[in-house]
């Protein structure tokens, strides 16, 4: 046993991971919101359960389980999860949001072509040739396959020349 370990007080303060605390807080808040709004919907009518009864019960479950979870964490904190690859999350989510935002304007073919090119060439560092071939197949190819093969209409551009 080292001097340092003798001098250090045993760590009694229980550390609940901030992400877990945030999760518990969010679920509890959602539960409270659901409880409050379901009362407004009506819990019981003359014909039996009202539209608010099921949500009310679920709101109650959320609040109760969040409280129980907090107690469990305070007694015995769960092991920390492995970190996520934030770069990947941001790249995928932002590119998807941009794609969804411009798809009606630019049409499926152009917007998906740019989206795939970004993931293949810029993020995936594939060669230009393979990136272009896959991006074209996944955008123009998929558009024709779905529109004419499966009879599923994918969006066309608001600007006619882009179609």
């Amino acid at each position: 046993m080292t001097t340092e370990s003798l001098l250090t007080k045993p760590e009694r303060a229980i550390r609940v991971a901030p992400s877990v605390l945030a999760g518990i807080g969010t679920f509890a808040a959602v539960g409270v919101y659901v409880l409050a709004s379901s009362v407004g919907l009506g819990l019981w009518t003359s014909l039996g359960p009202g539209p608010g009864l099921f949500p009310f019960a679920m709101g109650g479950v959320l609040v109760a389980m969040s409280a129980l979870w907090l107690v469990q964490e305070l007694r015995r904190p769960s092991e920390r999860a492995e970190g996520i690859d934030r770069g990947l999350v941001i790249a995928v989510v932002v590119s998807l949001v941009l794609l969804a935002s411009v798809m009606d304007l630019l049409g499926f073919q152009l917007s998906m072509f740019l989206f795939l090119l970004y993931h293949l060439k810029l993020r995936g560092r594939r060669t230009w040739v393979s990136s272009l071939i896959i991006a074209l197949a996944g955008s123009v190819g998929a558009f024709y396959a779905f529109n004419y093969g499966l009879n599923v209409a994918l969006p066309v551009s608001a600007f006619a020349p882009l179609n």
């Binding site: 998807l96 794609l99 998906m112 989206f115 993931h119 996944g138 969006p155």
Partner: peptide, 17 residues
Amino acid sequence: PILTALILLFMVIGAYT
């Protein structure tokens, strides 16, 4: 990267349609 891009493509088409 190619698999991820293709799976994302299917997800977008799936959700849109």
